[in-house]
Design a protein around this nucleic acid. Structure first.
Lengths: 253, 253
DNA sequence: GCGACTTTGTGCCTGCGTTCACAAGCGGCT
DNA sequence: AGCCGCTTGTGAACGCAGGCACAAAGTCGC
């Protein structure tokens, strides 16, 4: 364990405990964010291979399938502990179990989707969620015309019932698929309802208390990043001509 | 300009050129990926403020609205050049123009969506794309029942027509919203059609030639990352009890 | 016109994440 | 049983991104 989170070392580290509970906590905390994101990718690949009957996989193969460097993969997996066999590779089933444990996938996470527009509707019907242990159990909207109807078997409630319904269904993850305007209000409601993890599709930066985790998915931003690469490419490819369209007029004094 | 991209300095840097074309190219190349992503966020905030009639914004205000550190914001903007006024802040309109130029948003980017399932349907109807200069102009699917129907006014074509239609409409960005199985095949078709930027919603790692840029949006992965944080929280909050459910049995020899 | 105040732009440092390279460890073959 | 080859796990180096803090540069008031 090289990277100590932030200075504070655990007091004593000499005795020989059989079950090292603080270490479990330390380790979970110590896993870098970037690694967590990749673990999810590895998991998907592993589950796919497991279904094909593959029992063992080397870091090289797994890395190729996940689109990363094999050294990075090994380091990522080493955060979970030593579950590989030198000379052989990783036992697929064991690794699946370990990653699931680390990501907290041993329990189901009930998901509430707020905003049943284009996107919310799609998310409610998206099979990829429930099949991966994230069943959408509640839908909310402001539009009175939508209240009470069922989408993919799930009833749509009014925003005002968020606290009540979320508590009842033990919702752990809230998905905000509203327009930008209502998003902060919805977020506040979710937080008040005890939801501590939010996936935000609305194009606003949400203000949340410190104990709440927000991840933002912004489709327009993704396209703009791609757009940047388009122009960068064109810039790099064209030998020297036609750059005037840039309007770049840098005058050095 | 401190950060020289990769060693090679421009030959002479003494004369007084009026239009510094190579510098434009260098600069576009030098902008860090992380900065590009944030520029898109700044742009959205700026456009919002511009509509409210705000003419000038300080780095502090803009940073707060975008949810970042003000020093980081200033450094990000400095990659575009010096467009702020000390003691005052940034002129909103000028900055909008500069960011749009840098991101290549001065032209429209025609978008093709492949896969008209739940998600593809939502994307086709999503107003956030066209309003930001990314009109969805083509839809594709394999399902014969869908071919020929119109969604949000756009006709659905068969996959096989991707090359033809994309060329005709000058599609620059392809969006893959198919299940994982067909994704690589669709990707190959798009690449063959000359599309060089792809936004991939399918849960697979796409293999593409070097000159093609892929961005992946994986909703299940996002949820799994949130799930990780849920368990991390529970681990940190519970004083010491109930950690056995982890199954964490680390025995130090 | 000058001084005080405000805000930008950036040099420097720190820390995280990635990559390299290799020793340690394990299985299989002889 | 012992050796050989393969693969993991990790120490160490590197590079990039983030944050601090300050000098430069501009505005506003007097």
């Amino acid at each position: 364990m090289t990277a100590q989170p932030d200075g504070i070392e655990p007091p004593v580290d000499n005795a020989v405990p059989t079950v090292d509970v603080p270490a479990a906590r330390e380790r979970a905390r110590a896993i870098p964010e970037a690694t967590v994101a990749r673990l999810a990718v590895y998991l998907r690949v592993l589950i796919g291979r497991a279904e094909e009957g593959v029992a063992t996989l080397s870091s090289e193969e797994l890395a190729a399938a996940a689109g990363v460097n094999s050294a990075k993969l090994r380091k990522d997996l080493s955060y979970l502990g030593s579950y590989g066999t030198r000379g052989v590779g990783y036992d697929v089933d064991i690794l699946v179990g370990q990653i699931e444990r680390t990501l907290g996938l041993t329990r189901k996470h009930s998901v509430a989707v707020v905003g049943v527009g284009n996107l919310g509707h799609a998310l409610a019907g998206y099979g990829g969620f429930s099949s991966r242990g994230f069943p959408v159990t509640a839908l909310f909207d402001v539009d009175e015309d939508l209240i009470g109807i069922r989408i993919a078997g799930i009833e749509v409630h009014h925003l005002s019932r968020i606290p009540e319904v979320c508590a009842e269904l033990d919702v752990t993850i809230g998905v905000i698929a509203t327009p930008g305007e209502g998003a902060q209000e919805v977020c506040d409601l979710l937080v008040k309802a005890g939801v501590r993890c939010i996936l935000n599709f609305a194009p606003v930066v949400l203000q949340v208390p410190e104990h709440v985790e927000v991840r933002k998915v912004d489709l327009a931003v993704e396209l703009q990043i791609l757009s940047f690469h388009v122009s960068r490419r064109e810039l790099a490819e064209e030998p020297i001509a036609d750059l005037t369209e840039l309007g770049e007029v840098v005058v050095r004094p």
